[in-house]
């Protein structure tokens, strides 16, 4: 029984890493948003399974938050932002997809090496979850680094936060208050970023953040 419990937890956490890679692979915004919704759903499954095997009812609330906000509300909102900005064309990635994938594999290997060494005497489930969660976080960061488009950077940020939640549920320690406040701060961050997107767009007629690099300030 213990073997199967661990295997299913491993399946969901590994699935989350896989979906992170799928996000790196996508080069269209709408497809990216769909994969992001899938990311949230896999996270919800993973957290729900942890809630079940740890017998921790408060984790079910986390599951519901993940499913409702990240699986439905944020993707739908981003969809509408993309529609209003009129940017449903291809994403320009800074380096090619192949290089990004290789970098991603390197990051996953790095996080495994680091985490498995650091957590040598922890619980089996927690170790595995923390190692995979770190790779999800690093892949989210990689996504933010490699994309130029501000909307896909937002998606990278949100997937990074999914990784944090995975780590928190595996560690059996995060209180519900922290959990909910993190969820809401992410929502608020989302709103702020949304407003920023429209401001950037108003100012530069694009959401390509390289326009910000070229901007020298008001000269006139």
């Amino acid at each position: 029984m213990d073997g199967l419990v661990f295997d299913i937890a491993h399946l969901f956490a590994g699935g989350l890493v896989l979906v992170s890679f799928m996000m790196l692979y996508q080069d269209r915004l709408y497809a990216l948003l769909n994969i992001f919704a899938l990311h949230a759903i896999v996270l919800a499954l993973s957290v729900g399974w942890q809630a079940y095997i740890q017998g921790a009812p408060h984790l079910y609330i986390t599951t519901a938050i993940a499913l409702l906000f990240k699986g439905i509300v944020i993707p739908v909102a981003l969809h509408r932002i993309i529609q209003r900005l009129g940017i449903h064309r291809e994403i320009e990635t800074v380096v090619g997809i192949g290089m990004t994938m290789l970098a991603g594999i390197g990051l996953v290997a790095l996080s495994m090496v680091v985490m498995l060494r650091v957590t040598a005497d922890a619980d089996r489930l927690a170790r595995e979850d923390v190692a995979l969660a770190l790779s999800v976080v690093l892949l989210g960061l990689l996504m933010m680094v490699t994309r130029r488009n501000a909307v896909s950077q937002v998606v990278g940020f949100m997937s990074l936060e999914n990784g944090l939640i995975l780590a928190a549920t595996g560690a059996k320690g995060m209180p519900l208050v922290v959990e909910i406040s993190v969820a809401f701060s992410v929502l608020i961050a989302f709103i702020v970023i949304g407003i920023f997107l429209f401001r950037i767009r108003e100012r530069f007629d694009t959401v390509d953040i390289h326009a910000l690099d070229r901007f020298q300030g008001d000269r006139g």
């Binding site: 661990f6 295997d7 491993h10 590994g14 890493v17 896989l18 890679f21 594999i105 996953v108 290997a109 495994m112 498995l116 595995e128 190692a131 995979l132």
Partner: peptide, 11 residues
């Protein structure tokens, strides 16, 4: 394939 090998290693 790489990811499968890596995940196999940690489990």
């Amino acid at each position: 394939g790489l990811l499968g090998t890596l995940l196999r290693f940690i489990s």
